[in-house]
Simulated scan of single mutants.
Amino acid sequence: MIVRPHLHWFRMLLAWRGSVLPQLLPRLFLVLCLSVVAVAAHDHIFRLTVSLSTAPFSLVGIALAVFLGFRNSASYDRYWEGRKLWGALLNDSRSLAREALTLPRGGDQGDQSDQGDQDDGGGHQSRALNRERARPFVQILIALPHALRHQLRSTDPRADLEARLPAALCERVLASHFRPATLMLCAAEWVRREAREGRLDGYAVLAFERNLNSISDVIGGCERIVSTPLPFAYTVMIHRTVYFFCALLPFGLVDSIGWLTPIFAVFVAYAFMAHEAIASQIEDPFGTEDNDLALNLLSANIEAALHDLLGEPVALPARAPEQFILD
């Protein structure tokens, strides 16, 4: 994902990186060539003159603008839902880590450190003990966004999981097909062990279950977006209409604007084609194109937040300010 700062209006006109213009240049060049042919035919350079009325283009253009508006809205809804799901993943992961660090009862009753300053040493030891007991659980939460990112992008998660999970648990997760769901199962097993050993009461277990179920909803929501694209027939109909309209547009403009036809035809084609290209990119918000979600950075943010709760601050990777590239 490419993020640019607020630019001056003139610099915005010349913005290149992060726009869809680079991929549209060959198509716009084709429209330019058709426009030159239309002008040449209109001036009787060729024997065949093709001239069309602007009325059909006006009607088709209005309908096409409406269709592209619906297409863009449907794609942006998927993009924004994906962003909300990953925001919920961050919130629920923090909540689960906080519960794992505070709700379990210490076996030595050292957590009752609020009786006075003389008990501060015991309270510190209890917090350190709780962190060690909660560490396996938090490690699962740290690995979860990386496993989910790789599943959504159909990439290999081995390197990320091996760096964040114990060897035995890592092999178990890698052996499964739906790795985020397996990590959720491992997290639930940790809660069950803590409850069986008497460190979690029924209310604490319910609190864990509520947040675990919320993360399961996040995983299911992301899988739904990936597995259910917009209907192909709807997409291909708009795609064909856009290119058919842009190919014939020069022959509808040449009677009224003459040699200015190439300029206006290319500009109108850019407007329609760019809308379709942007909608096509954000239809799958978890990809790696310029306007997709920065899942690598979101995963790193979640990991840093959980390490911070463990008392192990992790600095986010530094990025050059002139690039503004988030992957």
Rank of each mutant, 00 (worst) to 15 (best):
V3K: 14
V3W: 08
H6K: 13
F10D: 04
R11P: 01
M12D: 14
L13E: 11
L13S: 10
L14K: 06
A15K: 07
R17Q: 10
S19M: 10
V20F: 04
P22C: 06
P26L: 01
P26E: 00
L28N: 05
L32Q: 13
L34Q: 05
V36C: 03
A38I: 15
A38T: 14
A38G: 10
V39L: 05
I45A: 12
F46A: 13
L48A: 04
T49V: 13
L52N: 09
S53G: 11
T54Q: 08
F57M: 09
L59G: 03
L59F: 08
V60T: 09
A63D: 00
L64P: 04
V66K: 01
V66C: 07
G69N: 05
R71L: 15
A74L: 07
W80K: 14
W80L: 13
E81K: 14
G82N: 02
L85R: 03
A100C: 09
R105G: 01
Q112M: 11
Q112N: 13
D114S: 11
D114V: 08
D117P: 00
Q118W: 06
G121I: 13
G123F: 00
H124V: 06
Q125M: 09
N130A: 14
N130W: 06
R133K: 14
R135M: 02
P136F: 00
P136I: 00
Q139M: 10
L141A: 08
L141K: 06
L141H: 10
I142V: 14
S154H: 12
D156W: 02
R158H: 04
D160W: 02
L165S: 06
A168T: 12
A168L: 14
L174C: 03
L174D: 09
S176P: 02
P180T: 15
M184E: 07
R193D: 10
D201Y: 07
D201E: 11
Y203S: 03
A204Q: 09
A204F: 04
L206C: 01
F208K: 00
N213S: 15
I215V: 15
D217G: 10
G220Y: 01
G221Q: 05
V226D: 07
V226T: 15
V226W: 00
P231G: 01
P231V: 10
A233R: 03
T235E: 14
T235A: 13
M237P: 01
I238M: 01
C246G: 02
A247K: 07
L249K: 12
F251Q: 12
L253R: 12
L253Y: 14
D255E: 15
D255H: 11
D255F: 00
I257G: 03
W259V: 15
W259H: 11
L260C: 08
P262S: 00
I263S: 09
A265Q: 09
V266L: 04
A274K: 01
S280P: 00
Q281T: 07
E283Q: 15
T288G: 05
D290M: 03
D292G: 06
L295P: 10
L298V: 13
A300N: 03
A304F: 13
H307K: 07
D308V: 02
L310D: 00
G311Q: 01
E312F: 01
A315Y: 00
A315E: 11
A320T: 05
E322S: 13
I325C: 02
